[in-house]
């Protein structure tokens, strides 16, 4: 172990330090802070000193907080809706654009990928104008096509759908590129031998592409699920979790106990309770990831 000289040890230490400080301060410390405050009732200066209340925050969360459970349900609906639509769509796009030496294919890819480079917040603002009930461009187009009443895109019944659509808009290109990378890793010989057997394109996809894509697909799905659970920026800008919490998700719900979602919102800051909510939220994501990993392993074993 002692093959480094003192000066070398110093160098190693010095080179690690900048990142290590950032890591401890910006990743580890906040989590520990949260862990401490889950046992307290504390809301900032106005609440006085933090009051130790044991597990009362969890009692409240699990027995007396319908909003959290609504947010939990919404989070699953959002994730299922977004992932369920964006994965097939992006897979389809990747299949279509997985061609070499076709003119313009690069341009098509780059265009579909473009939303990925846009700010979710700024585009949330643009979508807010587009989906506006009264003056929005989308309703105007629909009404000119013969729709009688404007669609209440941001109302309590449709807001979740709108938010999912925007989530898909922002994610499609991303997953398409992942799929493309996966597709390009499939040996071409497999297709060639299949062609000799006179296999049609659907069969090709089903018997060759999908099985060969298995590991990549698994990774993409997991990425998509985890990201969908934590998407809050566009929801925050577009609907602020409303109306009547129709688009409130768990991470946004935790956020509002610390910071106001919008200037008008008056939620009393509750750091202890908010810490409990965010901890449970991160456990939910962790649990979903683990369940997903176990399930996908089981599937492997079946085959």
């Amino acid at each position: 172990m002692n093959r480094y000289s003192k000066s070398e040890k110093a160098q190693i230490f010095a080179m690690l330090t900048p990142n290590l400080i950032l890591f401890i301060l910006l990743s580890v410390y906040p989590v520990l802070w949260c862990f401490r405050y889950i046992f307290f009732q504390y809301g900032g200066l106005a609440s006085g000193e933090p009051i130790f209340i044991g597990l009362d925050n969890f009692r409240r969360l699990f027995t007396n907080d319908p909003v959290f459970f609504k947010a939990l349900k919404n989070t699953f609906v959002y994730a299922a809706g977004k992932v369920g639509l964006v994965i097939p769509l992006s897979f389809f796009s990747a299949m279509m654009l997985n061609r070499k030496n076709v003119k313009g294919i690069g341009f098509l890819r780059a265009t579909l990928f473009m939303p990925t480079i846009m700010s979710a917040a700024v585009m949330g603002l643009v979508f807010y104008l587009l989906f506006n009930v009264y003056n929005g461009e989308i309703n105007k187009i629909l009404m000119s096509l013969g729709m009688k009443l404007p669609v209440n895109w941001l109302g309590k019944d449709k807001a979740m759908l709108t938010v999912i659509l925007i989530g898909i808009w922002g994610g499609l290109g991303n997953y398409m590129i992942y799929f493309l990378a996966g597709l390009q890793g499939i040996p071409q010989e497999l297709y060639e031998s299949a062609d000799l057997d006179g296999v049609n394109s659907l069969q090709r996809t089903w018997y060759i592409t999908l099985p060969m894509l298995g590991p990549v697909l698994k990774m993409i799905l997991m990425l998509a699920i985890v990201i969908a659970f934590q998407d809050i920026t566009s929801i925050m800008v577009l609907t602020e979790g409303g109306p009547v919490n129709a688009t409130m998700t768990i991470f946004l719900y935790a956020y509002q106990f610390f910071f106001p979602i919008s200037p008008g919102s008056i939620v009393t800051t509750q750091f202890g309770y908010g810490a409990a909510v965010s901890l449970v939220s991160s456990l939910v994501v962790g649990a979903v990831t683990v369940i997903y990993l176990i399930l996908s392993k089981k599937l492997d074993n079946l085959e």
Partner: peptide, 19 residues
């Protein structure tokens, strides 16, 4: 392993408050 673990522990933007 700590770095790897922190990739999976996400308390979201709430972390900004203690920071």
């Amino acid at each position: 392993s700590l770095y790897g673990a922190m990739m999976f522990i996400s308390i979201g933007s709430v972390a900004l408050y203690p920071i």
